[in-house]
Amino acid sequence: MWEVFARRKFEEPLHHVGTVAADDERLAQVYARTIFNEFSWVEMVIFRRDSAVRIMES
């Protein structure tokens, strides 16, 4: 699983736009780009969900 973050302007922080399932980084890129196409983003990045280090949760 990959977490997808994007922003529409550099003035705003990257925010979470969704997740995609792919075992391959290339496919994850394609999936993120084609599923979360609702805006013309200036930046989009993906992270493996299991790379997240959770330091707080309520």
Binding site: V20, V30, Y31, T34
Partner: peptide, 8 residues
């Protein structure tokens, strides 16, 4: 996911 990519 690939269904969406195919449509795109």
């Amino acid at each position: 996911e690939s269904a969406v990519a195919s449509a795109a």
